[in-house]
Design a protein around this nucleic acid. Structure first.
Lengths: 185, 185
DNA sequence: CAAATCAAAGTAACAATGTTACCGATTTCC
DNA sequence: GGAAATCGGTAACATTGTTACTTTGATTTG
């Protein structure tokens, strides 16, 4: 059992994988980072879920290809790679869990590709904001423009520009470190 | 055993998966497509390889999330999903093969994400051209600008513009339906 | 063979997005 | 209170995306 506080880094790209995490509570953010520290969100791991990248890399005794950060305070159960390999043989329910995790998160990554390739920035931004609001269950989003830009793999100025436009369209309200979504976003 | 001629479509997004393909000869192109027919290359499956998406979707009895096309004349061995599930239990070498396929192609997709998100278009284009040249073993590339744009998920005009620039920099030569890479690309 | 037709590529104009730099306002920390 | 850091606004410019139109070269057809 391991705990982590919000914002804490759990694994960086290139580190070897010795255990696979099962999230018990909180949210684990899985992202990809380039040399300059620019980041792109790949998927979230939520309570009851495992992380596809660690499953598959663990099974191949490889290093991590992604970065893991505690999005909210985290409680995770770490399973040794050896144990998880054994369970794959022994328990078909565990095998199904692992495989379905891989498929689902593979799907999420493909959706990321789609988003980035085919969607325009304003669509992506409103989708992102709605998703954030849905996950937190609140119409208030406590993030800086920079944080949003980082997660979306774009530029702070671009985010500010589009948010400003959405504000003049009366679809949201801007405050410092906070965005209030209005009902007709 | 199934054969397909270059350009032939093998599976479309949304179709159920009943067999998994093992490529014996030729190249299978795996891509993602949006509503307007815009396309983005995800990865190639080459002789001796299998397709991660069909492996994982097959194991979950799901529909395909990607489009498969014969890039060159193809000879593939189709394995029923049921048989491949059985083999997963029985043969650890087969299990390793499946898992390593999934990891490798997951990695390729993540690289796509990186490319699209972080790289500039000219970098992506020269990388694409070199890769093409490497795979075909020739410095002559027989593709239209439109075909290149489709695979890269961008616009024909953008490709023409950048190719023209590369030509004036004496890094390649442009012909109709053909591009000749020069040694200092 | 010449005219018509068609696909590929070139070009121009503009829109959307990315990038850098700078400014002012607010917060944080001595 | 004042220095330093953070956040967001704005301008200017570069890159990429989009649409429309033209030019070029190949193919078909009469």
């Amino acid at each position: 059992l391991i705990t982590a506080t919000a914002g804490q880094g759990l694994i960086r790209m290139g580190q070897p994988i010795t255990v696979v995490p099962l999230v018990l509570s909180g949210t684990l953010k899985v992202s990809r980072e380039n040399e300059e520290g620019q980041e792109l969100l790949l998927y979230y791991v939520r309570p009851g879920e495992g992380c596809a990248m660690t499953f598959s890399c663990g099974l191949m005794a490889q290093v991590s290809l992604v970065k893991g950060t505690a999005e909210e305070d985290l409680l995770i159960l770490c399973v040794a790679v050896a144990a998880m390999e054994e369970w794959m043989q022994k328990y078909s329910s565990w095998k199904r869990f692992v495989m379905s995790t891989i498929v689902n998160e593979f799907m999420d990554v493909i959706k990321s590709v789609d988003e980035v390739t085919f969607k325009k920035m304003d669509e992506r931004l409103t989708y992102y904001l709605k998703e954030r609001s849905r996950l937190s269950g609140s119409s208030l989003i406590n993030l800086t423009h920079q944080q949003i830009a980082d997660e979306m793999g774009t530029n702070r100025v671009v985010v500010s520009r589009l948010l400003k436009k959405l504000e003049t369209e009366k679809r949201l309200l801007l405050y410092r470190n906070q965005i209030k979504l209005l009902k007709d976003l």
